[in-house]
Design a protein around this nucleic acid. Structure first.
Lengths: 144, 144
DNA sequence: ATTAATATGAAACTCATTATCAACTTGGGC
DNA sequence: GCCCAAGTTGATAATGAGTTTCATATTAAT
């Protein structure tokens, strides 16, 4: 769990864009990588703040944008209007099943659905570039 | 194309909630019903303004919310972060295929995908309440 | 017509996110 | 190690879609 690969990717991205390393970026990346959750900017901010109380909100957003561009992170835009960040590197494509009561996120995968999507797009003469599939409902614990 | 049914539904909704009819509500509903498109609040505002220049933005939002509650309208939240309104009455459930270049909306339908979604939810112990499926790509005209 | 309840438009306010900017780091050349 | 141009930061202002507030205007039941 040292995230060597991810860190190397970020370093390479920084280099390729002639950007610079900074303590803040390292720290935000560390916190993000160590947490296998779908975090909001606010949650990340609170966690990072514990290690560096002078961190600013904007730096969280800026760094998450960089991580996204570097291919380490995916921005999720679910119904509540708040962006969540999830790991992308070494995580194969998936969609989400979300509990509307407790907020639980479950990663789902369905090659059959993907195929059907392609078929539909083709039928309408579209070339698919991406899709969004979210299933909302009540999880096992919340439905009772 | 007189939308008798839709108007009756709205009247009944207004009555059931002890609300009142108003010129503005009628006008906004008319403009919405006559346009078989996925309109934003801004687009509706511009269209309504031509017939009643003193209309306020808030009245558009308030009325669209009422139409949604009455079951005549569905709010669509697609990637650009702007809510769009589409007809719901007499329109069976569908998802969307959206051209990211020209903004074209195509309504799609796939019972097979819906089935698979239910199956996935069930597998994880969820009760599905709704879902969101959007396919993004380039349409026939834009892909060349 | 009276009047109590609801609706309206303008403007203030949210809330997540982005832009601005002066002060501060970073890192490559000496 | 020091310089310094280029990039970064945190605070704060700005943005933009959507909502709330509130004084005034409409509606509809009597």
């Amino acid at each position: 769990m040292s995230f060597q690969k991810e860190k190397a990717i970020f370093t390479e991205y920084i280099r390729s864009k002639n950007l610079k390393h900074s303590e803040q970026r390292q720290l935000i990346m560390d916190v993000f990588l160590k947490t296998e959750k779908h975090l909001t900017a606010e949650e990340l901010y609170e966690m990072v703040k514990k290690k560096n109380p002078s961190i600013g909100y904007a730096t969280i957003y800026r760094t998450m944008k960089l991580l996204t561009e570097a291919g380490l992170c995916r921005e999720l835009h679910v119904v509540d209007g708040v962006t969540r960040y999830e790991h992308l590197y070494n995580h194969k494509h998936h969609d989400h099943l979300i509990c509307t009561k407790c907020g639980k996120f479950v990663e789902i995968e369905s090659p059959r659905i993907e195929e059907l999507q392609e078929k539909i797009a083709k039928k309408h003469g579209f070339i698919l570039t991406r899709h969004r599939l979210e299933l909302y409902g009540l999880c096992k614990s919340c439905k009772n």
